[in-house]
Design a protein around this nucleic acid. Structure first.
Length: 681
RNA sequence: UGGGGUAUGGUGUAACGGUAGCACGAGUGACUCUGACUCACUUAGUCUAGGUUCAAAUCCUAGUACCCCAACCA
């Protein structure tokens, strides 16, 4: 049963002094109502009511004087409580953004806590990966002063096993728990039906006997599965979770954090509320499927508090929200693990994976992921978000932040027949100005604003030490032999094809106007080379005005290019969505059937802007995270610079890059209305 | 079949008895040295049926659809 004091849900409260006539009332300044999500509405309601409302602290009281700048503000304390049994995915990212975002918004605190109650499934590798991912996302739980100011600490549920054990004995003593010797199988058989109650033969065992057996369980005198500690709640409840749920099971198993100290381990329902309680969490935010567990959450805490006068333990409020679903994506730890174990991807950080590590490797910025989470909002309605929304957030971010380069993925040779040669007969080389990022002005503004925290302070290549951007333009070499994109030439162009074709004039970006005068073909009829002429008067990319002041002539297309003599070969990995169906597995029942066989295309001989060979970097950052035990976790995060390859998309330097050999991941394409139109025909 | 949830344009989300708004998408156009970006305009919605009310997305009644629950997982 929930606290009598717990309002069931978000019913917004009017501020006590809000004008009854509302924003539209005459005389009121035109208010721009900032709409709040349901979690914020609940928090506001808690602050505005409850035992400490008079002191401004509402239901949870105020932060104490020891909290410094936070002292006296109403307490809001959230947490992200992952089980370390897998890597974080985009759904977890939403939870981090939510929980950390709330702590930040309300000047509160945010904890990272590992819900490590099942040693059979959990591993240190996952602990480390989660710490890394949460920090990278900007969910700063650290208290060492190096991060933000909302860190509440790093904790482990396993640190509370001793306290939980004491409370379990207390519940036995109070007649609210008993040792049951039914096997898992038997419990299942005796579970009953929605209308028929469950049964247990040990329910009315004397308290002393349960206490003795429970102590024997803890002492290791009983084998796995031989007995459990069960809560004595209601065998007839239509909510099966209340039919005397298991609190402790015997597991003779070494734990990644507590070693061999325990052979009984608490179940989620018994443990989770206490974890929140001990840490002083105010709002325990979880996903919808836990809603029917909330009665247990409350029952266990109330059972400990039963009969206590003034040493009651803290009782947080559990609140549920709808988990994130994305089209063309799975967010199931089990299925993600399958993809890794069956080697259908290269690992947890395969850039096609919806894992945080995959998104990082692909080149998604944490700011973009946070913007995405803000954008989609939070509610209790199940929904499926278009994957393109995530991609849009990524594009939006890098458009403002990524330096530009010109690279040719599928090269087609261009020879400029009228290009001048020097005294020795070699084509002249010119060095032209190239604009690093046409949105420099905006970028400067952005850079002066608050940046997301990243490990080592490097939120993005632009703020990293040794940032490739040093000025608004740089030089690029241009000669009479170039590569252009194969797609940018058609011998027989369709309607509305503005790019290069025989007789048609286009612009080479930041260089010259170019006109096609002929093509070379091989024996099979494939075009091997395009012959062109250039107009020297268009140097820099603009035509001069006519002799009588006529407006300069225009071209409809601008192509990217790279000098054949200067281009650097590099590998580029083109990723497409990992599943070809919006809801993988919906049709056949097996999501594996919907894997997109074309989700990865590797181009080994892309012609890269020579600038990149020295400028593009892959960064490895380390940071020491100290947990509540004073233990240090050395966290290593690696990410590559992200560039826009003009007209193609955003590309990030992959960890596989080696000196002299660059490997780029296509992070996301640019929008392409030409391709869209073409696909429609 | 029992219990717990959720229904607003194609998608996501506001509204808290008083003008159904915003974003994304889509469409059209403008601009453009990236068919990008940007800008303008357009498009389209309260699950159904009753009821209360001067007034209903909102309150009431009855349906319908979808999601979750019978692990010693979380």
């Amino acid at each position: 049963m929930p606290d009598a004091s717990s309002p069931k849900f978000a019913r917004p409260l009017l501020a006590p002094d809000a004008p009854a006539s509302g924003p539209g009332a005459p005389g009121n300044p035109p208010e721009t109502p900032v709409s709040k999500n349901f979690l914020e509405q609940i928090i506001d309601e808690h602050i505005a009511s409850g035992p400490n409302a008079g002191a401004g602290g509402g239901r949870w009281g105020n932060w104490p004087a020891s909290e410094g700048w936070r002292a006296g503000k109403p307490r809001v304390h959230t947490r992200f409580p992952p089980e370390p049994n897998g890597y974080m995915h985009v759904g977890h990212a939403k939870s981090v953004c939510l929980n950390f975002g709330l702590a930040k918004k309300y000047d509160g605190k945010f904890n990272l806590r590992f819900d490590d109650t099942n040693p059979a499934k959990e591993e240190q590798e996952y602990v480390d990966s989660i710490i890394r991912d949460v920090i990278w996302l900007g969910g700063d739980f650290t208290t060492d002063g190096k991060g933000g100011k909302h860190g509440g600490g790093l904790f482990y549920a396993s640190d509370y096993f001793g306290k939980m054990y004491e409370w379990a004995e207390e519940l036995i003593t109070k007649g609210r728990a008993y040792v049951c010797e039914l096997s898992a199988d038997e419990v299942s058989k005796r579970r009953g039906t929605p209308t028929q109650p469950a049964t247990s033969p040990h329910r009315d065992r004397p308290i002393e006997e349960s206490l003795r057996l429970f102590r024997e369980m803890k002492a290791g005198k009983h084998p796995n599965g031989s007995m459990t500690l069960r809560a004595k709640i209601d065998l007839a409840s239509p909510n099966f979770n209340l039919r005397d749920p298991v609190m402790y099971r015997i597991l003779h198993e070494s734990h990644q954090h507590t070693g061999n100290a325990w052979c009984i381990y608490p179940m989620y329902d018994w443990a989770h509320g206490f974890e929140d309680s001990i840490e002083g969490i105010t709002h325990s935010i979880c996903t919808l499927e836990f809603e029917i567990h909330r009665p247990l959450y409350d029952w266990f805490i109330q059972s400990v508090n039963l009969g206590r006068a003034d040493n009651k333990i803290h009782h947080p409020q559990q609140i549920e929200f709808a988990r994130l679903n994305l089209t063309y994506t799975i967010t199931s730890k089990r299925k993600l693990l399958d993809l890794v174990e069956q080697k259908r991807v290269s690992g947890w950080d395969d850039p096609r994976m919806p894992t945080v590590s995959g998104m990082r490797r692909r080149g998604y910025a944490p700011e973009a992921i946070r913007n995405f989470c803000d954008d989609i909002g939070v509610t209790r309605q199940e929904s499926v978000i278009d994957f393109t929304r995530l991609e849009n957030a990524v594009r939006d971010h890098w458009n403002k932040h990524a330096p530009r380069a010109m690279c040719v993925l599928r090269p087609l040779k261009v020879v400029i027949d009228n290009w001048p040669k020097d005294a020795s007969g070699k084509p002249v080389v010119e060095h032209l100005d190239f604009v690093m990022n046409p949105e420099t002005a905006e970028r400067a503004k952005e850079a002066s604003g608050e940046r997301g925290p990243g490990i080592g302070g490097a939120a993005s290549p632009l703020t990293a030490p040794g940032s490739p951007i040093t000025s608004s333009t740089r030089k690029i070499p241009f000669t009479g032999e170039l590569f252009i994109e194969r797609d940018d030439f058609m011998e027989v162009p369709p309607k509305k094809f503005f790019r290069l074709s025989p007789g048609n004039e286009v612009r080479l970006r930041w260089a010259y106007f170019l006109k096609c005068v002929g093509v070379d073909k091989d024996a099979a009829g494939n075009i091997t080379c395009v012959h062109c002429t250039y107009d020297p008067a268009t140097k820099g990319g603009d035509a001069p005005p006519g002799p009588n002041g006529e407006p300069p002539r225009k071209v409809k297309a601008t192509l990217h290019w790279v000098s054949a003599a200067h281009a650097v070969d590099g590998e580029v990995r083109l990723f497409d969505r990992i599943f070809k169906e919006e809801e993988p597995g919906k049709r056949t029942g097996n999501y594996i059937d919907d894997l997109n066989p074309a989700s990865l295309e590797v181009i080994t001989d892309a012609k890269l802007d020579p600038y990149l060979i020295n400028a593009a970097k892959h960064h490895t950052n380390t940071r020491d995270i100290i947990d509540g035990h004073g233990r240090t976790h050395k966290i290593v995060t690696s990410n590559g610079d992200v560039y826009q390859f003009e007209r193609l998309g955003y590309f990030s330097v992959d960890a596989d890059s080696k000196p002299g050999k660059l490997v780029f991941n296509r992070t996301v394409t640019l929008k392409d209305s030409w391709a869209k139109d073409a696909a429609k025909q």
